[in-house]
Design a protein around this nucleic acid. Structure first.
Lengths: 225, 225
DNA sequence: CGCATACTCACTAGATAATTGGAAAATCGG
DNA sequence: CCGATTTTCCAATTATCTAGTGAGTATGCG
C-alpha cells in the first residue's frame, strides 16, 4: 500500500507486495492494548469479558482489538454457548512474543526505562528465571499470589495459591524452613515483589520469578490446571 | 498513551507505561518501507543514497524512516565525510528480524500468500537453506548473481560474482561437472531463480539459496568482503 | 417465542503517521 | 570562505488508526 505506489526504476521482479503483507502483520505489535491482551491471553484461555476485566480495557475495545489479533492469526476463538474463548494460536506465537519483548527489554532504551521505573519503587529482590525455577523443582515453597481464578485457569506445578489480599492473614502458614519463591501474573506485575516484601519482613528467604507466570508459560514449561 | 487514559478499577501497580513503550517499539514493524530498508541494510553497511536506490524508496522518505529505525536503536549511523553509513545495530536485531519474518512467512496467511505469489511465476527449483549451504562448503559452484557492488560489499565465502545481466554472456564459464548454487539479494529477490532457470536450460544441476544473502548473513554465517 | 447475556459490526470524531516539497545543516574540494 | 554534495529538519497534506456510540447477531433460558 504505502509501498505499492512507488514507480521505481524497472526491476525484474516486484517484492513490494511481500513487504506490504509483512508490514500489515507488523501492525499487531504497534499497539499497547494488543500487546497487553496477548500477555493476558497467554496465561490461559479466557473470554472477552474476562480479558476486558483483567486488562482494564473497555469491553468493546477489547473485542475490536481481538478481531485484529485473530485476523493476524495470533489468537484463536472458540465459542461455547454465549461465551467466546480466546487463546494463543500456537507455541510459535509465544516464541515470537518472547523474542519481541525480550529484545525490547534488553535493547530498547525506552522499554528498559519503563520496566526499570516500574520496579523502581520495589526493594531489591533477586529474581529467578523460569528456567532456573524449573530446575529447583520442589525444593522451594512456591507461592502463586494471583487471584484464585487465575490460579484455577493454570499455574506452575507445585505452587500453592495465596492471593496477595489474603497473604497477610495466611502469612504464618508459609513454612519457614525453606526458600520461598513468589510469582504473579505477567512480566510487569508487582504483586509478587509486594508479597516478597511481606514475606521477607517475616524473616523468609524469598525470591520472585522473572516474568511471572507469563514467562513460565512462554518458555513452554508445564502448566498445571 | 493510548493505554494511559483508561481509568481502571484501582490496581496496586500500573503496568501501562511498559506496554506503551513496547507498542511504541512495535511500530517499527508496522511499515513495509522500514522492513524493506532493514532487509537491505542487513546485506551490509550502506549510505542513505545507496539504500534509496537499492530499495526504490525516495531519498527523503528513506532518510525519514531511517531516523525512526535509529530512534528504535535497530540501526546505527556512522558519518564519514559527507556520507552517512547505516548498519544493523547488533546481532540481536538480526535474530529478531529472523524471528519476525520467519513467523510471518510460516504462519500468517497473507504473508505466505504474498511470498507464494511472488515465486509463483518461477519454475520449481529446490532451494537450499543457508545452513545446508554452509555444510556443502566448496563442493559446489557458488554463483552470486547480485550487482557487482553488492558483491563487493559482502558475499558468501567462495562465491563468484556473475551479475544476472552478464550471466547470459558468461554462462559457458560455469563449470559443468559440479552442482551449481545461485543466490541473490534478499528473501524475496527472484534474480537467483531466474539465473537458475538459465543455468538449468544449459544442463546444469542447479539450486537456489533460500532467503538469499540476507538469510546467510542473518544466520550469522561468515561473510567475505 | 421473547428476553437476557455475551459479543461483534458499522460508523464517527479525534489523534497519529507517511510522504513530500522547501529549507537548513554538515562536510569536502578548491 | 564559496559552492557542491549528501543528508536531515520542518511543515503541510493525505491517509490511517483508535476509542467510543449505537445497533445488530448468536446463543441459551423460561
Amino acid at each position: 500500500m504505502a509501498f505499492d505506489h512507488y514507480l521505481r526504476h524497472p526491476r525484474p521482479f516486484d517484492e513490494r507486495p511481500v513487504y506490504d503483507a509483512l508490514g500489515e502483520f507488523g501492525k499487531v505489535f504497534a499497539n499497547p492494548v494488543r500487546l497487553r491482551l496477548l500477555d493476558v491471553i497467554q496465561q490461559g484461555e479466557c473470554t472477552v469479558e474476562d480479558l476486558a476485566d483483567r486488562s482494564g480495557i473497555p469491553l468493546k475495545n477489547t473485542s475490536a482489538q481481538l478481531q485484529q489479533l485473530r485476523a493476524a492469526q495470533l489468537v484463536t476463538a472458540r465459542r461455547d454457548g454465549v461465551r467466546v474463548y480466546y487463546s494463543i494460536a500456537s507455541a510459535a506465537v509465544e516464541q515470537l512474543l518472547r523474542a519481541f519483548t525480550g529484545f525490547a527489554e534488553q535493547h530498547v532504551a525506552n522499554v528498559r526505562r519503563a520496566v526499570d521505573d516500574y520496579f523502581a519503587t520495589q526493594p531489591h529482590l533477586t529474581p529467578v528465571s523460569a528456567e532456573q525455577l524449573a530446575e529447583l523443582g520442589d525444593t522451594v515453597t512456591l507461592v502463586d499470589v494471583r487471584p484464585a481464578e487465575d490460579f484455577a485457569r493454570g499455574h506452575i506445578p507445585g505452587a500453592i495459591s495465596v492471593p496477595l489480599p489474603v497473604l497477610e492473614r495466611r502469612i504464618t502458614d508459609i513454612p519457614g524452613h525453606r526458600d520461598v519463591v513468589a510469582y504473579c501474573e505477567g512480566p510487569y506485575c508487582l504483586a509478587s515483589p509486594k508479597a516478597a516484601e511481606m514475606l521477607a519482613a517475616q524473616g523468609h528467604s524469598v525470591h520472585t520469578v522473572l516474568g511471572g507466570f507469563t514467562a513460565w508459560s512462554r518458555a513452554g514449561l508445564e502448566v498445571a490446571r
